[in-house]
Design a protein around this nucleic acid. Structure first.
Lengths: 212, 212
DNA sequence: TGTACATCAGTGAACGCGCGTTCACTGATGTAC
DNA sequence: TGTACATCAGTGAACGCGCGTTCACTGATGTAC
């Protein structure tokens, strides 16, 4: 519970909106339980009464949607920063994958909401078009295409299939670690090296199964 | 809601336990929402009053744990049946991976509970020891070791690391599809072929990143 | 064979709780005249 | 410069709901004598 909050001056009402999103985020990280992020808990954390939430969000779903949107934007930021300055397209793709996994492991609760939640939990729009149109997804497909253009990856494979396969692979590592943190996983660095090494090698060499 | 249930005869009280687990399972599949699986809803589905549940389960967590345990056993069954009769160890490993993905896609709600849920949701014991000791996990490690013994996979890599990497890969495909069913994924067969082909090829060839 | 009785398999009512949301309101603050 | 007033940023109380769980009970059923 935060301290008592001073009422915003006239014209500064929008400040509360940002405070609410921050508080929802804080609660999510602190409790590690999205069920604990209730309208009432958020209001208490902000230092405001529950109905005040409805001055800025139509209902709970809209609020959680806004939280997701912020986190999704920060995922793309993180990935772009991770590959900034890496010229080789394949190394860049690999760095992107590694940064993705680390983002998930470092922000398990956000990651769970974004990519592991029930479809019903996040608003419908996130289902497909939003995800497709998202900066993070577009950047991944572009990164694959850059590899193909440079000859690092074979061009005879759909860039979307390759992007999806890579996404599934890094998502697999991230989401397993997020879902079962107490399992005795190999050291994270080893796991990342192994999985990305295997996948990148297989992809670069055409991804044909070794057995006809 | 099922029809009225006849009271068990004396000595046959255990029948209710099985009926409760079946009902919980049915509810899970029908609603696709684990929050809908409440003690009261289960009781109504069985055709019994809510307190009757407590004749067989100490609390809700124990009930859900029992549901998970059954599903986990059926996952191992499915995988073993899928590889039965496949002699080549690498083909067998591949078939195991494919069967795993299809199990997840075919049983999205069970899969979500087993491998995508909050750690707090499933009882603590599932966290590590249970999963490690599980038949499905042991069988996977053994399958990798069989490949190494036959020379299909390099022996200079930890079988647990390779098993974990493979698990992460198939889990990635399964859990993405489960979490975002409305995303325009490539055809499932293509995705399975691609991801397993890439991973198996990379693994069989040492998994060294193509770039030093 | 008949009957008292213990036991088994439940029932029915109630508990306290936290939830999302609505509604009528209030009091400080900036603005128009 | 002073004051009436509209507006903004909330408050406080209440709603109905479904939840997990507890408790005292009941009525059929098998068993011992």
């Amino acid at each position: 519970m935060a301290a008592v909050r001073a009422r915003s001056r006239r014209g500064e009402g929008e400040r509360l909106r940002a405070d609410i999103l921050d508080a929802a985020d804080r609660l999510l990280v602190a409790t590690g339980d999205e069920d604990a992020v209730s309208i009432r808990a958020i209001a208490a954390e902000v230092g405001v009464t529950a109905p005040a939430i409805y001055l800025h969000f139509a209902d709970k779903a809209e609020l959680l949607f806004a939280v997701c949107e912020r986190t999704f934007a920060s995922l793309d930021d993180t990935l772009e920063r991770a590959v900034a300055g890496i010229d080789d397209p394949l190394l860049s793709l690999r760095a992107r994958g590694e940064a993705y996994i680390r983002f998930g492991v470092d922000n398990p609760d956000h990651y769970r909401i974004l990519f592991m939640g029930r479809p019903a939990f996040t608003p419908d729009e996130w289902g497909s078009e939003r995800l497709l149109a998202s900066a993070a997804y577009r950047h991944l497909v572009e990164a694959v295409e850059a590899c193909q253009a440079s000859g690092s990856l074979p061009a005879d494979i759909s860039s979307e299939l390759a992007a999806t396969g890579l996404w599934a692979t890094v998502h697999g590592v991230a989401s397993l670690l997020v879902a079962r943190p107490s399992f005795p996983w190999p050291p994270l660095d080893d796991l990342i090296d192994h999985v990305l090494g295997v996948h990148a090698f297989g992809l670069a060499n055409g991804g044909r199964p070794p057995i006809p």
